[in-house]
């Protein structure tokens, strides 16, 4: 009585388990899929895929946004974009922002991160101070710096006037405006990169550094041969954010310079706004959006594939 069921159980068990596991696989997945996929799929379709498709469609028309697009112009909008001097300026500026991020912002952030993770008094306070600009809204930062740079009533004006000379108007000069904007970008975002590096630094095993110390490594050697290689993935992530941030930059530029003077401080998104939205050129603006999308996707995916493969 007792052996038979046990025996049959034993015989049946593996087959049953196999069947059950596959049954759980299918039956267990479907409710989850049915419950959780549609909302996300719907949202993604309505707010991401459809607009993207629509933008691609509109980009082939000369259209002012009223009723339906009817005037088919083929690839004319794209031709106009690449002929537009302001768009080339925007591309160069986006490149500049990336270069400045790599050459100044990230090294600065890393240096400060190594400083404020040292057990010095006040280090935590400095972390907070350096992080403050990042917390500020982009628009507010733009307005503040517009005032700071003002040569009449602003901080720059007061400093120059204190020495009895006429102050420069950096934001109003096409040769200096972009440099002034880059200064604000570094000021605004280095704190964010610093926080990334602080987290990265804290993840480094103290013992490795101690071992290096015992081996007689100098401070610079410890940084170059131990800290930096172990921060590799953080550096790559930080640069990734810098690249993406440069492509998104808009809300700080508008109050700061309005993308002027003479389009000197255009970025790709401000270009889209001033030439697409403000001029009611929805077709042209959509074409800019498509170009921006292609650039973003290409950059993001190739960066991840090439540099962040192992992270």
């Amino acid at each position: 009585m007792s052996t038979v069921p046990i025996a049959s159980d034993r015989v049946a068990a593996p087959a049953l388990a196999r069947r059950r596991s596959s049954a759980i696989g299918a039956q267990g997945k479907w409710p989850v899929l049915i419950l959780f996929l549609p909302p996300a799929l719907l949202l993604f379709t309505v707010f991401v895929f459809l607009p993207m498709g629509e933008a691609a469609w509109y980009s082939l028309y000369n259209w002012n946004g009223y009723s339906l697009p009817t005037q088919w112009v083929g690839l004319k909008n794209f031709e106009l974009i690449f002929k537009n001097a302001a768009f080339r300026t925007a591309l160069v500026n986006n490149g500049l922002i990336i270069v400045i991020s790599i050459c100044i912002q990230v090294p600065l952030a890393m240096w400060l991160a190594t400083m404020v993770t040292k057990p010095i008094r006040g280090a935590v306070a400095f972390r907070l101070i350096f992080f403050l600009p990042y917390i500020l809204a982009d628009v507010a930062a733009g307005l503040i710096w517009r005032f700071v740079y003002d040569g009449q009533f602003g901080l720059v004006g007061s400093i120059w006037h204190a020495f009895g000379v006429d102050a420069p108007f950096w934001l109003a000069d096409k040769n200096t405006a972009m440099a002034a904007v880059l200064g604000v970008i570094v000021w605004k975002y280095f704190g964010f990169h610093m926080m990334l590096f602080i987290a990265g630094l804290q993840a480094i095993d103290r013992e490795v550094l101690e071992a290096a110390e015992i081996d007689g490594a100098t401070g610079w050697q410890k940084f170059r041969l131990v800290t930096l290689p172990m921060l590799g993935s953080t550096v790559r992530l930080s640069l990734f954010f810098a690249v993406v941030g440069s492509l998104q930059l808009f809300d700080m530029i508008m109050p700061l310079t309005g993308a002027g003077p003479l389009n000197a401080t255009q970025t790709m998104v401000t270009f889209l706004y001033t030439f697409g939205v403000m001029r009611m050129q929805v077709g042209f603006g959509s074409a800019v959006g498509v170009v921006l999308f292609v650039i973003c996707v290409t950059l993001a995916f190739s960066y991840r594939r090439i540099f962040m493969r192992n992270d």
Partner: peptide
């Protein structure tokens, strides 16, 4: 005036 190119 100085800075006219940036003046709103």
């Amino acid at each position: 005036q100085d800075g006219w190119q940036g003046a709103t």
